[in-house]
Write a protein that binds this DNA or RNA. Structure first.
Lengths: 345, 345
DNA sequence: GCCGCCGGGCTAAACGTTTCGCTAAACGTT
DNA sequence: AACGTTTAGCGAAACGTTTAGCCCGGCGGC
């Protein structure tokens, strides 16, 4: 037994009850044409009387606009995306739009499937943290003239608006902070190579080392695959080195947690035995020990800005070539970084 | 300049290209009637050739089913909901449904507005963590025969399926753990009074005290409004008491964080000066100090179960009176609880 | 050899809106 | 009074599907 919506009350029921035409009902609902006050009143009464609620599906079909945004991220479980989503949701509903949420787990096949779904559903706009830079099925939205905003990450070859943070500067500041404390052997745990943020943050790491005249040791750079377990493994490898680093920089929050697990498992103290800095702040970081020194991103604002861009395109108030909104991260210094053990050098 | 979807490629373009009728195209796409292999092949080729993508809006209008679920929670920023959402999203997309996400901030007016929106959009089903027990506009979905599942919280007067955790038992175990360590003055921080979980968790707290023969002191029970700042204030009040408690139980994660802030602000050590236990585990709780002793809920599974119930109703495999799925929480003992300072008593 | 049935595909009517173009009345102007 | 012009409201054609019902030809049964 498949369940169907019970036959609903339509606009014609209202028209009948108010003894006006369907067009008049539509006009009073949408304020799309003049309707005399008397008729308006009759229509409103009829609407209440028969218990009419407009059908957004039928409206979407006719208007060719769905009042719906697609939001594709890698994982809602990650606190970084959480505030982003919140910012997007708030801004979208403030403009009467609903949001369809999609988690890709950084997998291109999932991303592709979701984009197909969203395309079928004729979303009005798409906000996307792409899982990789090779795919080009995003292009469809551009060709269809559907606004597309990349968030957090970008794909340089695809001409779309972008909201990101200055990852290079953020990472450079964090590593410079470690350098300033006297560290010379500074390890880094990098993320997935197909994501733009990875390269930028590693670039910042390199810049900070170079500025300090510290030669980059390739053995100190490990791939954590942007994941918790990967971060833990990478950290383990770094700590098992013949001459382990005195400080480690993790390029995202998940890998930082993995790093902390590796630290705890070895009975090391932070920051006494090892200094730790990472990208991505999280709300509760200040309550627990060690209080992590992090590069904080304005996540909520990033979400809000992305929606702004999107509606700018939708309403035509924004046109022309793609815009790139680059927000500033801030280094939040807490307790997880100290001077290297055994004094300078 | 308002942007419209460009005139899209419709099923009739495919029909024309394949030199068959529209009905045949539809039948081969949906496997809803026999179509000879030869024609199927021609249709598929035509689809690829003209680049056809079905319009889900038009389909929804005709089929009276949207393949969309509504999900209404209080705040996606809260890690408790985060795993819940993930479980729901995974289960929903496994069945080809999309999810519209709505945050109420525990406000009834927002909840009402969202339900109105979801109603207009003719969602196939609704999963809801209600912000309060007084409203009854949820009834519409029941009357319209749209499956509705309450999650995390319930409204006893509304006959709908429910997925919750055994809050009474969970709270009782946590507080019994404190009692077992020797605590007799145990404070509690309660949440919003209009939410069912609040009452159940406080009931568990009371049961544990009673079982231990400890008289309940009303001064030790404070309202934290389910929020971080409320928890901090409530904790402050408890700690300023002439005879402060030696242990505090917070009935959700946000208030627990507020509690920890109050503890840190006063320079107290946990668990040496004060033992802390709370409801709601979070993924990273084991990495930082103090490692909180918490009552963990199977959040991902709760989400998945809610979707199962919902599809059971949708497909008719589940019928009859509302089901109540009660999952078991587990007490995760870590380091935030110890014996009361100054030994027993 | 005729009839009935059925396989395979088509025609056309929905689904519930919005909106274009039209009518008919009212009005102002000479 | 005749004539444009505006105005309030209506009728009907879309929007892109699904699906009920129909038609036609071939085949088996008698």
């Amino acid at each position: 037994m498949s369940r169907l919506r019970s036959a609903s009350i339509t606009i014609r029921d209202v028209a009948r009850a108010a003894r006006v035409s369907i067009a008049t009902v539509s006009a009073t609902i949408n304020r799309t044409a003049y309707v005399s006050p008397a008729l308006q009143e009759r229509v409103r009464k009829a609407i209440a009387e028969v218990g009419y609620h407009p059908d957004a599906i039928a409206r979407s079909l006719k208007r060719r606009a769905t009042q719906t945004l697609g939001l594709v991220i890698s994982d809602i479980t990650n606190p970084f995306f959480t505030a982003l989503v919140r910012g997007i949701e708030d801004a979208a509903t403030a403009r009467g739009h609903a949001v369809i949420l999609c988690n890709t787990d950084e997998r291109l096949d999932k991303e592709r499937a979701y984009l197909e779904l969203l395309r079928s559903r004729r979303i009005d706009g798409l906000i996307l943290a792409p899982a990789g830079a090779v795919a080009d099925y995003h292009r469809f939205f551009i060709e269809a003239n559907t606004p597309l905003v990349f968030i957090d990450r970008k794909i340089p070859t695809i001409p779309a608006d972008v909201v990101v943070v200055d990852n290079v500067t953020g990472a450079r500041q964090a590593v410079a902070h470690l350098v300033g404390l006297g560290h010379r052997r500074i390890g880094a745990i990098s993320g997935l190579p197909q994501i733009s943020t990875t390269h930028e943050r590693i670039a910042g790491y390199r810049q900070a080392l170079e500025a300090a005249g510290v030669p980059a040791d390739p053995a100190l750079l490990r791939d954590g695959h942007s994941r918790l377990d990967g971060g833990e493994r990478a950290a383990g490898a770094l700590l098992e080195l013949p001459v382990p680093p005195t400080a480690i920089f993790a390029t995202n929050n998940l890998m930082a947690i993995g790093l902390m697990r590796a630290v705890a498992a070895r009975g090391l103290r932070c920051p006494e035995d090892l200094s730790v800095a990472c990208f991505d702040d999280f709300e509760w970081a200040s309550v627990f020990r060690p209080r992590l020194t992090t590069v904080a991103q304005p996540t909520y604002e990033m979400g809000a800005r992305a929606v702004e861009l999107l509606f700018g395109r939708l309403e035509g108030s924004l046109s022309g070539p793609p815009r790139e909104v680059v927000l500033a991260p801030t280094l939040v210094v807490r307790d997880s970084c100290g001077p290297p053990p055994g004094g300078l050098r």
